[in-house]
């Protein structure tokens, strides 16, 4: 296996109209590659661990940029940069969990060019898979990480099915916590996918992280007004405060009814191939007042059913601690 770092020859399309991009995506199908900020793409191509005939650069399409208020919330174009999301006043006012999550993505330089869409659909960071090995996720017959001595500290504790990779996206957890709707567009029109069904587990989509089909482009996400201005919490625990992906992260939204929690979304990143909703925690929270006692009472529910691997059982106490913190910290 050789080591590479030069960008191989690849066609580059720079459409300025969405229709052109959709047509290209349709025509190229799996042979094409949608290009957002490129922060993940270029690594794949330069390493020659993945290849495509052509890249479709989505950044030049005006319609994919921007944060717009709509009748029922806010719509964010998929090519909006993470930096724009971090700094947007409207988002910070209404859906602060998303800017908080976006602010913890990678590094300031990457956030300057990285897009929301790219962050949401990015591939897993399983180091075996990234190495270009033909594992299950790459269409092969085995998983290197889930093996007796596999180095799987950063792998999943929930939702494994042959593959034990985790979703690396920080903003994905916020999307699920906000009940966002993902707008997948193709030449056939728009398909609206709830965030909870946008991200895919290996039991169904072992070679993909999302349910986007070839030819579809994630054009926007819609944040419903339902969660606007609610109490939020986001925290990401990573080895370093820059660059690194979450060991575990949490995005939570609490709809307070009087002093008590009416409805809640508690979602962990870094523990499954999808943002992992802690439904038992959510259920247990109903009718309780947020605070340290409640956190203590529900924390253990966070890890019920978890199946840690050899090197990642620390994710269990970490998840429970993050649930405690989400309920303890004042909004």
């Amino acid at each position: 296996m050789a080591s590479f770092d030069v960008m191989p020859h690849i066609e580059l399309y720079k459409p300025t109209e969405l229709a052109d991009a959709l047509e290209l995506a349709d025509r190229l199908g799996p042979r094409g590659w949608l290009l957002g900020g490129g922060q993940d793409t270029y690594g794949w191509f330069k390493d020659r661990a993945k290849n495509a005939e052509a890249m479709i650069d989505l950044n030049g399409i005006e319609a994919l940029h921007g944060i717009r208020e709509t009748a029922d919330g806010i719509e964010i174009g998929a090519a909006t940069t993470l930096r724009e999301i971090v700094r947007d006043p409207l988002l910070n006012e209404r859906f602060a969990v998303l800017p908080a999550a976006a602010a913890r993505v990678a590094s300031p330089q990457i956030r300057n060019v990285g897009t929301l869409g790219g962050n949401l659909v990015q591939d897993t960071r399983c180091w075996y898979y990234r190495r270009g090995l033909a594992c299950y996720r790459a269409g092969g017959n085995l998983c290197y990480a889930d093996s007796p001595q596999g180095m799987n500290r950063e792998h999943c504790v929930f939702g494994a099915s042959r593959c034990v990779a985790v979703s690396p996206s920080d903003t994905a957890t916020a999307m699920v916590a906000l009940d966002a709707t993902m707008v997948a567009t193709s030449v056939d029109g728009e398909r609206l996918i709830p965030a909870g069904r946008f991200f895919a587990l290996p039991e169904t989509h072992i070679t993909r992280m999302t349910t986007l089909e070839p030819g579809e482009i994630l054009t926007a996400v819609r944040l419903p007004a339902r969660w606007a201005g609610k109490r939020f919490y986001f925290e990401k625990v990573a080895d370093r405060d820059v660059w690194d992906f979450a060991l575990v992260s949490i995005a939570a939204a609490f709809d307070l009814d009087g002093g008590n929690i009416g409805d809640a979304r508690v979602v962990c990143g870094g523990v499954a191939a999808v943002p992992w909703r802690l439904r038992e925690v959510e259920r247990a929270l109903r009718g309780r007042a947020p605070g340290a006692d409640t956190g203590e009472a529900v924390a253990a529910l966070a890890t019920r059913g978890a199946r840690p691997l050899n090197y990642n059982h620390f994710k269990l106490p970490l998840m429970e601690n993050l649930v405690r913190r989400a309920l303890r910290e004042p909004a």
Binding site: N141, L142, C143, Y144, D146, S147, P148, G150, A160, R162
Partner: peptide, 16 residues
């Protein structure tokens, strides 16, 4: 035998 089941955890016992 090569996948996780309720009875055992997978191994990479066979060569590729």
């Amino acid at each position: 035998a090569m996948i996780d089941t309720p009875w055992w955890n997978r191994t990479n016992a066979l060569s590729e």
